[in-house]
Design a protein around this nucleic acid. Structure first.
Length: 980
RNA sequence: GCCAGAGUGGCGGAAUGGCAGACGCGCUGGACUCAAAAUCCAGUGUCCGCAAGGACGUGUGGGUUCGAGUCCCACCUCUGGUACCA
């Protein structure tokens, strides 16, 4: 670190005036940290470890957004703070660089994806470094690095090599899978197929979401409203052979293990709901005549409930077996396997037509037309209701999903909203079998206490989670029209009938999940190739046998392709790879490589492990280092990844755990979701035919268009300048016409709206420390908040004041103000200092950065007034500021006479005694209203407080003629006199 | 529809059940200046009042409490998520 030199651009004419100039000091310190390797993390923790992780960004072509530095600044503060408290901190950064946008961009600009990806990474890196984050850049990685995706591929081979043992509730090596004797007897091919069907990574002819515009299939999670999450293109359903990951095997553990995690209840619930566990029963409905039914049911008593439903029954899943007596018809999904058998000759044409229509309907179309309007066709056949012994008709309808439960339902129109609508539509019988419990909704006002009211409502909601709508009641109640069960409460009935069905061999308890297996293959170029080989016979046809590429032969690199554009057909672009890549000979056999690639999620499933040991080329992560650094102690990122990324990563981690590659079952101990940053607040007025229309005179028409209420004319929105509006009551109105209300709202930043704030611009104008500080000062980290340039200016102003607190800005040289002296602080100064230390320390621990900054502002306001500013207090303050505004802090630290970075300087210690004051001001309340204040010794006793309060002249005046009924005294806090 | 979160000055926001509005922005006044900018100092919830002081005030209505922005019940509005999962 050289001596501080005068900058030419600081003051070109006249005497040198050392102003706060972030454009000069920020690059200087970034350079220093880099050359001194200040933030390099040792291989193993040297002290208590702290692993703080940011969700790594996707390096898009548009560069960093102001939303990125929000979470990154928060974690940077936590890390810098932790280092100063002696912890060994692991704080890495990387890039999630595979995926569709890069490929789309590459196609559009005709650059290879690797080239544009590298450019984007370079740009992101520059921007991140410009903000002064204390990452250990030597650990930086990108999911597209060959040395990285080699291990992504390796983990895939682990998934391929694993089956889930439901008894032990864990994944085990495929070699340990017990093979039934009859399978063994059928030979090696049968055994291989048996294994392949049970692997965690398996191929399946799945009904997939095919997106022609993107030229790939998408996971259910990537389809929103029947359109692709990326690009908003329509998606079709079609059957295709795809790679799937058996995440459903881990559903139970993915729910259960949430318990021990320090995540917000909201996020936990989101994951829980996504997994969607429900309990109920599977019930078999006999397909045949009433006569045969007696014989069949007698047999069932002996043989019990079979694992696989035969073709003589229609198996359904229901969460309400108690409503079995009300099941008046059945519905199968259009894709149900028994449909051919169920359809009678006369209905064949109609059913076939309906099935065709349903299969060609995209999800978009299924949801677009009135979702409430049910469609369906009668199959002509019926099944026997096992409790009544009576036949009920079987219908086909697309409101039943093939992929959930058994793909068939028993319909109870009296107690299920959807069944009810369908029954009304097609005039099917409705039998009520549950009677709502008449809620004793007594007058709430007469409740004896709040707590008993709470108990009552909890019980009520537990027993009646549904609502009565028209004729349909989906809540819990008491059974009626249910034979011997009449009068039984729903919950009890469920248990009883499930047991009864089980003993009769007609049903069994069952658990279902909304979560589906993870569709893992994509028909695109820019992703990790699958490390899988398909065996070919002599004629070059696939035999169906597959094997994984051996670990020592990894990575499978991407081949060079002249043309990797999607062509709208489901054959992956890698199919056009040169033969040298595509075909492999091993052990005298010929193989063709798998040509699908992995989805973007793959790389982000384990990057946190690679950061621990990023350059290891013998193992994905050294187990000793893994054990030392894991779990991630703090993981910060946007809530948009609350479900997908976090669920996928947890799943992979559990597989690695089961197979002994990592030491703990969960990767992310504490999770914090940063809120979204919106654009500046905008005022929007509306005009119709050039005349202003008040927002109170607006409504939406059927098409969602804004029209006026009175004339029904469409309106156009007009941006109104802040100076032209004024507040009136609860809303804003035009200043020159208060009858016209306008909208006041901040919108999501978007290119089309033109309200995107560019971090480069902010840094150029105000400096990185100001940007960091502002993003933390805006409000709570987790809240959604609007941007305000005036606010940035405000924190910049604060940093200027910090500068002038210590720097002699009128001097000829860069030097301390004469006011900064080597003297002991006064008692008052010491109190302010230590209160500030205590508050800032506490607030950082709570991640309440906005209040921490407020406390530092108070410190500066106080010491700005001081004629003499003790150097020791200034030094402590600089250390407090360092995690927030590290560049400025380093500069001042140096000015205070230190020759080394403050990055590892010990955090100031609070002197508790100094924070206390001898006297406190205590309010006097009369009947809970503030009536006066008095200054008393801090340790003033209750008795003395009362005496002093009563002696107060103003109190006496107010108490005249009144009688004191009660006195509440909280020492050091308040006195409250209750009088009559 | 359902689920989650949030409603506090002109604005962003603070407040272990104990003095609502910390801190910042904005605004007003003052000092400095020939003047301006910058800076520093003071004030700034609303209403009544010359003032002292008083009344009202945390989306709405109720409740618990000596005391409620905070706890309970009901409702309204906004934001985000989700969508036939039987």
């Amino acid at each position: 670190m050289g001596s501080i030199t005068t900058s030419a651009n600081q003051q070109s004419i006249g005497s040198f005036m050392p102003r706060y100039n972030p454009a000069e000091i920020e690059p200087k310190w970034q350079q220093y940290w880099e050359t001194e390797r200040t933030f390099r993390t040792p291989d193993m923790p040297q002290a208590e470890k702290l692993y703080v992780l940011d969700m790594f960004p996707y390096p898009s072509g548009s560069g960093l957004h102001v939303g990125h530095p929000e979470g990154y600044t928060a974690t940077d503060i936590v890390c810098r703070f932790a280092r100063m408290r002696g912890k060994t901190v692991l704080h890495p950064m990387g890039f999630d660089a595979f995926g569709l946008p890069a490929e789309e961009h590459a196609i559009k600009t005709n650059t290879p994806p690797r080239v544009s990806t590298e450019q984007n990474i370079a740009e992101f890196t520059r921007q991140l470094k410009m903000l002064g984050f204390s990452y250990d850049w030597e650990r930086a990685l990108a999911t597209t690095d060959v040395g990285y995706f080699r291990w992504t591929q390796w983990i895939f081979t682990v998934l391929f090599d694993t089956w889930y043992d439901p008894e032990q509730q864990r994944g085990r090596a495929i070699a340990e899978l017990p093979i039934p004797d009859d399978v063994t007897a059928q030979g090696a091919k049968a055994v291989a197929d048996y294994r392949d069907a049970r692997r965690l990574a398996y191929q399946d002819d799945a009904l997939v979401n095919w997106c022609p515009a993107l030229g790939t299939v998408l996971a259910n999670e990537e389809v929103i409203d029947g359109k692709s999450e990326r690009g908003d293109h329509p998606v079709q359903r079609m059957p295709l052979r795809q790679w799937m990951l058996r995440i459903t095997a881990y559903a139970e553990r993915l729910i259960g293990d949430l318990d021990g995690l320090d995540w917000s209840p909201g996020i936990k619930k989101l994951q829980c709901d996504w997994i969607g566990r429900s309990t109920g029963a599977e019930v078999d409905f006999f397909l045949g005549s009433t006569d045969e039914y007696l014989k069949w049911s007698a047999e069932r008593v002996d043989i019990g409930f079979p694992t696989d439903a035969g073709s003589d029954v229609l198996r359904v899943y229901t969460t309400r077996p108690d409503t079995l007596y009300g099941a008046t018809y059945m519905v199968v999904a259009p894709e149900h396997p028994l449909i051919e058998q169920l359809t009678v000759a006369g209905q064949r044409e109609a059913v076939e037509k309906y099935r065709q229509a349903a299969s060609f309907k995209s999800d978009r179309e299924r949801t677009e037309d009135d979702a409430k309007k049910k469609t369906g066709v009668f199959t002509g056949s019926s099944a026997i209701n096992p409790v009544s012994g009576k036949p009920i008709p079987i219908w086909v309808a697309d409101y039943v999903l093939a992929s959930y439960g058994t793909g068939a339902i028993m319909a109870v129109p009296a107690h299920d909203e959807r069944d009810y609508e369908f029954a009304v539509q097609f005039d099917l019988p409705i039998i009520t079998v549950v009677e709502p419990i008449a809620e004793p909704r007594t007058q709430l006002g007469t409740e004896p206490s709040g707590s008993s009211g709470k108990d009552k409502s909890a019980t009520a909601s537990e027993h009646a989670p549904g609502e009565t709508t028209g004729q349909c009641f989906s809540g819990y109640g008491t059974a009626i029209n249910s034979g011997q069960y009449d009068g039984t409460p729903t919950a009890q009935f469920k248990t009883l009938i499930t047991e009864s069905l089980a003993t009769q061999g007609l049903g069994r308890e069952a658990v279902n999940y909304k979560l589906r297996d993870w569709l893992f293959s994509r028909q695109r170029f820019w992703g990790e190739p699958f490390p899988i080989l398909h065996e070919l016979d002599r004629t070059g046809k696939a035999t169906g046998a597959i094997r994984a590429v051996a670990a020592e032969d990894l990575p499978v690199n991407l081949p060079h392709l002249e043309d990797y554009k999607p062509h709208g057909r489901p054959e992956p672009p890698l199919g056009k790879a040169p033969d040298e890549w595509l075909y492999v000979e091993l052990d005298g056999k010929r193989y063709r490589r798998e040509t699908n690639t992995m989805p973007q999620w793959a790389g982000s499933c384990w990057y946190y492990l690679r950061f621990i040991d990023p350059h290891n080329d013998t193992v994905f992560c050294d187990p000793i280092k893994e054990k030392a650094w894991m779990p991630v102690d703090l993981y910060v990122g946007g809530a948009e990844h609350a479900v997908l990324h976090l669920l996928y990563a947890r799943f992979w981690h559990k597989v690695l755990f089961d197979r002994g590659h990592v030491s703990m079952p969960e990767p992310f101990q504490k999770l914090v979701n940063q809120g979204m940053i919106l654009g500046e607040v905008e005022y929007t007025g509306y005009q119709s035919a050039g005349k202003w229309v008040s927002t109170s005179n607006l409504r939406k028409d059927e098409d969602g268009q804004l029209i006026t209420v009175d004339t029904r004319q469409p309106v156009e929105s007009v941006v109104v300048d802040e100076a032209d509006v004024t507040k009136k009551g609860d809303s804003f109105v035009l200043a020159n016409d208060p009858s016209i209300r306008v909208d006041s709202r901040a919108h999501k930043m978007s290119k089309s709206r033109g309200n995107v704030v560019n971090p480069d611009q902010v840094v150029k104008e105000y400096g990185a420390d100001s940007l960091r500080l502002y993003e933390m000062f805006m409000g709570p980290l987790e809240a959604t908040k609007p941007w305000s340039m005036a606010g940035v200016n405000g924190v910049r102003n604060f940093l200027d004041r910090v500068w002038r607190l210590m720097v002699d800005y009128q001097a000829e040289h860069f030097e301390l103000l004469p006011a900064v002296q080597d003297v002991a602080p006064t008692a008052e100064q010491n109190q302010v200092l230590h209160r500030t230390i205590a508050a800032v320390t506490h607030d950082i621990e709570m991640m309440s950065f906005n209040t921490a900054i407020a406390r530092m502002m108070e410190f500066v306001n106080f010491f700005t007034k001081a004629e003499v500013r003790p150097k020791s207090a200034m030094a402590d303050f600089v250390l407090l500021l360092a995690p927030f505004a590290p560049h400025l802090a380093e500069e001042l630290w140096q000015l205070l006479g230190n020759s080394h970075s403050l990055a590892y300087q010990a955090w100031p210690v609070v002197d508790e005694a100094a924070t206390k004051s001898a006297e406190v001001e205590v309010p006097i309340q009369i009947n809970g209203k503030l009536r006066g204040r008095m200054v008393v010794p801090a340790d003033c006793s209750k008795e003395n407080l009362e005496k002093l309060a009563l002696a107060d002249p103003r109190t006496q005046e107010l108490l005249e003629g009144k009688q004191i009924v009660k006195t509440i005294i909280v020492p050091g806090r308040l006195v409250n006199l209750v009088v009559k």
